[in-house]
Design a protein around this nucleic acid. Structure first.
Lengths: 339, 339
DNA sequence: CCCCTTCTCCAAAACGTTTCGGAAGCTCGT
DNA sequence: ACGAGCTTCCGAAACGTTTTGGAGAAGGGG
């Protein structure tokens, strides 16, 4: 590995001059700069980022903490799409990405803040965390570490936030069902520790209220965003509330489970039950029936999150919150209420 | 940020002692070690990994270079599953992951080797690269940078390789079709720059030969591993070779396109055409018809790749090559040849 | 009592950069 | 001819660790 020292020796100038030449400072003669530049290319010199970081205190690296990086995460590629968005924007802005998983074991020994401190990332993007994750609170409140949260409402000087308009998305889903004539509409929600669940429930309520349909707590099931949870929820709905003709699910994955439950009991969607999901995962367009769902653009969310974080890091003061819109995609899992 | 210096001052000992105490050396009194340890905890001391790396020359970081980290990659989550596997094993082995994308723009300015040199990763895992990628050749031959290649056959002192038995997988797929009575079997392959394509073609040929079916180059189509490519290939097969009753595709994604082509022309699988895919992507089990396919365990591949790389990094001399088995999953896109 | 171990501890160098504060040498106006 | 002001360069400190090579003290055997 050629270092700046080797280069200085070879060029017959000081280390300082090499550094300033290569970094485009104005106090070095254009001719010597050229000479140094070509020499550097010849010798294959690459500045050592570690040494540089040590003195500049910047690593041009952002930590990405995704809870969904695990084997199950593959089915819904939400985390992956987010990561792609983050990555693409990060590359454009010339930042690197350090991937932190949230393996339960590691969570115990080291908090995110510790991870970030140790590895000296300039900032972090967090996604898929529970609302009351203790480490999350630490990051947001105790440290003032720059970070961007995805789908977790929190803002402060150094904390940004990107999400989609979940209230509106959910309302659109439920309105679609109401427009099809459905009145008894159940909801399969995620879990209480997710901000999006609260928002989507809110949207569900709003849509019902606007249509003059009374809200019934009993029609709210929690499926934990899991396929299995959707299965059980649908089972419960069919047995406990046979009058229900439509379901709004807070995730497509849970719809897959719900469809299995329907089938198991000899029913089909949308004939027996209209279902609208959330996310528009890849499977949604291909499963049977293809799912009516609310599409959220996870790629864009990641992309915006990276942009927002870098804006914060480079002291461009713009808004701390970004809300993207979602879109109702009508496919064949919903149908008019047959009387 | 508390540094080792602050800690030394607070504890009234030298920097050396702090370092050696915290790193578990034997030449520090157990009492002082305890004292230092609790003091470090109190003060929230975190060793600066950057400074440490500068002197140790190790970063405990592995670079992951995946070409498929982009918006399109979301549909087949192969890259993601691989990443999950890498990540899980890396966490267990206490390594971090630096994610390099292969944005075309960046490829021009910096080679992988440069990326790795600059960022001082200890080693790298590469996947999704074309067989004759110039930068790949550089990594493998010119530098002796430790890396593990996924699905790219190359071995040397510092280069490992993990793949699945693509020849056998393909042969199993084709044998399945032959067993169902099919004789005119086309293949939709990826592209010539993929090692897996060559292997799968090999398996296809082998299976045909074993059954005494003559090989016909005209029945080989290239779909470039793209959905659209599968569409066009199937179109071509139906028009140019109406006698074909079964297709082996080198990826499920291309099968999705092929199914669309079939449908467009008023046909259905498996009635008109039996199709077996490759990969067993998430959609495969849910689409219509559910796909018969060869499952390869991308997660395991990533996991093994990480293990192999770390073994190499830590000078455990084991094999440089890992081949995982694949598995035929029979669903409903294949059926006995109806005479 | 002296020498040899063993146990603790430490000063200083090293890693490869950036950057601060000059210091020469040159030009130019007066 | 002289100082001011540029231009171009450089020495040395700093960043936060690890590691080398010892040094002082305590203990033990002869």
């Amino acid at each position: 590995m050629t270092t700046i020292k080797d280069l200085a020796k070879a060029a017959g100038v000081s280390i300082t001059t090499i550094s300033r030449a290569l970094n485009g400072y104005s106090d070095v003669n254009e001719k010597t700069r050229k000479r140094i530049q070509t020499l550097a290319d010849q010798m294959g010199y690459r500045p050592n980022a570690v040494a540089r970081s040590l003195v500049t205190k910047k690593t041009r690296t952002i930590g990405v903490i995704l809870s969904e990086i695990n084997r199950e995460g593959a089915k819904d590629s939400l985390a992956f799409e987010t990561l792609c968005g983050i990555n693409d924007r990060a590359v454009e802005l010339d930042y690197d990405i350090l991937l932190f998983s949230t393996n339960p074991k590691k969570q115990l020994s080291k908090s995110y803040a510790d991870l970030c401190k140790e590895r000296n990332v300039d900032g972090a993007i967090l996604s898929g965390l529970r609302l009351h994750d203790p480490y999350l609170e630490e990051v947001v409140h105790k440290t003032n570490f720059p970070c961007v949260l995805i789908d977790i409402p929190a803002e402060s000087r150094n904390v940004g936030h990107v999400t989609t308009d979940n209230v509106r998305g959910a309302a659109a889903a439920v309105n679609h069902l109401i427009g099809l004539g459905h009145r008894r509409i159940a909801m399969i929600n995620g879990h209480d520790e997710a901000a999006v669940s609260q928002d989507r429930l809110e949207g569900y309520k709003l849509a019902l209220a606007a249509a003059g349909i009374p809200f019934d707590t009993k029609l709210i099931y929690n499926g934990g965003f899991k396929e299995e949870g959707g299965f059980e929820a649908m089972y419960g709905i069919l047995y406990q509330h046979p009058g229900v003709t439509a379901v709004f699910s807070a995730s497509d994955l849970m719809v897959l489970g719900a469809l299995r439950a329907l089938e198991r009991l000899g029913h089909r969607a949308p004939e027996r039950m209209s279902i609208v999901g959330y996310d528009d995962i890849a499977i949604a367009a291909h499963c049977s029936p293809p799912l009516t769902t609310i599409r959220q653009d996870r790629y864009a969310m990641g992309y915006q999150a990276a942009q927002l974080l870098v804006d914060m890091l480079e002291n461009r003061d713009i808004g701390r919150k970004i809300t993207l819109q979602s879109e109702l995609i009508v496919r064949q899992s919903t149908a008019p209420l047959s009387v």
